[in-house]
Write a protein that binds this DNA or RNA. Structure first.
Lengths: 234, 234
DNA sequence: TGTATTTTATTTGTCGACAAGAAAAACACA
DNA sequence: TGTGTTTTTCTTGTCGACAAATAAAATACA
């Protein structure tokens, strides 16, 4: 009964713990593995990751800073709810950021950016082929984030990333039970967007980005209006 | 204004320490009391606020999340630099957010919002009268933040707040040594913006917001180009 | 039985201490 | 004197423990 075998995986690099916890929790929240409202228990996480509460706490503070979790002082902390009542403000911001990031990408991209963008484009197409919903959602977000990076405006990029994160949660909600056919159209639109960027056609990029965003918004709104009252419970 | 009161009884309320440290450090950073590059020492802050390093650390993590300080792993942490080389990306984002928040305010404001906005408008005018630069800068930011609040889009509001924060640092830099005459014009423009919002004239609000933003940008660019090489050292 | 009050339990916020990592200083050696 | 190596110092990252705040349970009382 000697506890000598505690040396299974105790070797951890010094600053890596918080990032690991942060990344994992973030993914679990965005993929709805931790649905909105899920309680977050610090000691439970500390046991799970075999570390003290301190680095866990730091990761939680960062997640709270991005609005992914909510903390009630001295009480509990839980995964943030999706604000269905104000989805329009989300859509407003999303459409504008789609436009402006695509536009800036057409103006500011460098050759190496296109390589990265095309990589995610192919990842997304592959995910559509294999009908892998989770992968479709995450690679789509990565594709547009890469375009934003090529636009080289960190202020827009960070807001856009936050919006794409929230979008991941909302999309995940619908792909949970439905197997829609719209992804193929999106693959084609992505290709058009890439072409416009490469041609440095700023106005076309703006227009395509806007149209693409509005397609997505319309799709989500259709799904949403179809089953209000079910998902609103979340 | 600030009631630090570090000498009296160390009877603080339980969750108030982090907020106090966060608020104070944030103000000191934005007012350039802590100039870019200033080292942030945890133990020093802990002694100054008579508390443990833990709440200090949490405040620093939050500040880092907003980009106000930068942390080098295992080494040091310091106040973030102002990126003069990419000021144009800052201006791009600032102008767009001025436009969109003013526009949304005209569409979505409620009567009580106008009261708040007018309050900050008068604060700003008073600061201009007394030529109180620090107060001019902070009330100007508060004025536009209040307009953004009236627009009721938290995504835009949070980005705009971050931009206004950065703007506070940049303006502070120039008001340090110059006593320009442009504030009075800004008072008038603020009045015009309020009128457009109150009339729910969305297009006028958009146009005035854009013009106002571009005025500020042009002013800062003029000051900047006048003494590059001096301030670039920061 | 229903309600107010006390007690317990659970979770968070804070603390002091220690160890790891990196920079600076001290040192050895040619 | 200059360079490479070792030692010291200084700051951060992590830990375990304790105290405060709140919720839940238990109890008292009508």
């Amino acid at each position: 009964m000697t506890d000598i075998d505690t040396n299974s995986v105790p070797e951890r690099k010094r600053g890596s713990g918080v990032k690991m916890v942060y990344d994992l929790l973030r993914d679990e929240i965005l993929d709805l593995v931790l649905p909105p409202g899920s309680p977050i228990d610090e000691v439970q996480l500390a046991e799970r990751f075999k570390m003290s509460r301190t680095p866990i706490r730091e990761a939680l503070v960062r997640l709270a800073g991005e609005g992914l979790i909510e903390t009630l002082p001295n009480r509990s902390t839980m995964v943030s709810n999706i604000d269905f009542l104000n989805l329009n403000t989300f859509f407003d911001a999303l459409v504008l950021m789609y436009r402006v990031t695509t536009r800036l990408a057409a103006r500011n991209y460098r050759p190496e950016d296109l390589t990265i963008i095309r990589g995610f484009h192919e990842d997304y197409a592959a995910a559509v082929q294999t009908r892998d919903a989770l992968r479709m959602i995450s690679t789509n977000a990565a594709f547009h984030a890469a375009i934003a990076d090529a636009g080289r405006n960190p202020y827009f990029t960070s807001l856009f990333r936050r919006l794409l994160d929230e979008g991941r949660r909302i999309l995940r909600l619908y792909y949970r039970s439905y197997d829609e056919q719209f992804p193929q159209r999106f693959v084609d639109e992505h290709a058009e967007i890439i072409a416009a960027i490469e041609a440095r056609d700023i106005e076309a990029a703006d227009r395509l980005g806007k149209a693409h965003a509005e397609q997505i918004v319309a799709q989500v709104q259709k799904l949403f209006s179809r089953d209000v009252g079910i998902d609103i419970a979340l």
